[in-house]
Amino acid sequence: MVKYTYYGHSCFLLDDGKYKVLCDPFLTGNPKAAIKADEVECDYILITHAHGDHLGDAPEIAGRTGAELVGIPEVLAICEERLPGLKQHPMNLGGSLTLPFGKVRMTLAQHSSGVAGGVACGYVIYMGGLVIYFAGDTALFSDMQLIGHKDTLDYAILPIGDNYTMGLEDAAMAAQLLNAPHVIPVHYNTWPIINQDVRHYKEITEAMTRAEVHIVEPGESREL
C-alpha cells in the first residue's frame, strides 16, 4: 500500500509507511501549493527536469531533511551549485536504480530540459508492491506503449494542462497507450494558461480506455 499526497502542480509525495518519495517539489511560488517547503518531509526526491516549476525547492528540502536526490546529472549539478554536498543519485534515460523502498527506472519525456546538456525525463517507480509511472512534463509520444508493455503499470500520473505539455485529448491517448488501470492527472489549473476541466478529462479518458481517473485536489491524499 502506498499513500499518494498531492501538493499541487506536479508535486506529490509517495509514502509506503517507511519511506517517503517526493516528486518535483515546486512549492515556493506555487499558488496551489498545499504545504510549505520547510514543512515537507521526505527520504528521496525525484526531479524530472530543471524548469523552476519542477526543480523548485529540491536542493533546500534535501539539505534540510537529508533526502537523496535522483535526476539527470546536469539537473543535479544545478542542485549542487545551489547547495553543495547533497546526497545524489545521477541517472540517465533507460537506467534503473535500486533504492531501499524498491526501484526507479528513468524514462523518456518529450519536453525541454531547462538546463544546457540535460534532457527531461519521467520515472517508473516500484514501491509498496505497486508500479507507478510519473510522466513528468511531456508531449504525447508513441513509445508510451513500450513503457506500459515493459512495466505492467498500476497507476499513471499524467500532465493534462496543455500549452506546455499534453492537453486533455493527448493525455487520454497517453492513458490508452500506457494501458494503466488507474490515472491521476497533474500539472493543470496552477495558472490560467494551463486551466483545464479535469472532470471532462475524466469523462473522455474513461470512455476510451480501461482506466479509472482519480481526481486528487491539492492537499488531499489517496491510498493507492
Rank of each mutant, 00 (worst) to 15 (best):
Q110F: 03
K3W: 03
D197R: 14
H51A: 03
D38C: 07
A156F: 02
L158C: 08
D24I: 01
D57S: 07
T48V: 08
G117W: 08
M173H: 10
A135N: 05
I72Q: 08
N30A: 10
G128T: 04
P25K: 05
V21T: 06
A50C: 10
E39C: 06
P90C: 10
L27K: 10
L168T: 15
R199K: 14
L130I: 01
A58M: 06
V213W: 00
V104C: 13
M208R: 15
T5Q: 12
E74G: 02
E223H: 05
E68C: 11
V40G: 01
V75I: 10
V70K: 02
S221R: 09
G56Y: 05
G95K: 13
E41Y: 07
I45W: 03
G167H: 05
I194L: 12
A34V: 14
T138K: 07
D197M: 13
I125E: 01
L27D: 11
K103T: 15
L130Q: 11
G85L: 10
L22H: 05
A58P: 04
N163R: 13
A116N: 12
S112C: 06
H187V: 12
M106P: 02
I45N: 04
K32Q: 14
S221M: 09
L140A: 05
E68P: 00
P218H: 08
K36H: 11
V216Y: 03
H200C: 05
L108W: 14
T65L: 00
I125N: 00
M127R: 02
E80I: 00
Y201W: 15
I193W: 15
N92D: 15
G129H: 08
V186S: 12
D24S: 13
L22A: 09
G117A: 12
A174I: 10
A174Y: 03
K18D: 05
N30R: 08
R64A: 06
Y126P: 00
E80K: 12
R105W: 06
C11D: 03
L158I: 12
M173Q: 14
Q145E: 12
I160S: 08
I72D: 09
P31E: 08
A62N: 04
H89F: 11
T107A: 09
L178T: 06
Y126W: 14
E41V: 09
V70A: 05
G114N: 07
I132N: 01
D170S: 11
G219V: 12
E60K: 07
L224T: 00
A211P: 02
Y155L: 14
C121H: 07
G161N: 08
I47C: 05
E41K: 09
I215K: 05
G161D: 07
V198W: 04
R105P: 00
H187E: 12
G161S: 09
C23K: 00
T65I: 01
H187G: 00
G128R: 03
D38Q: 11
D170Q: 13
G8Y: 02
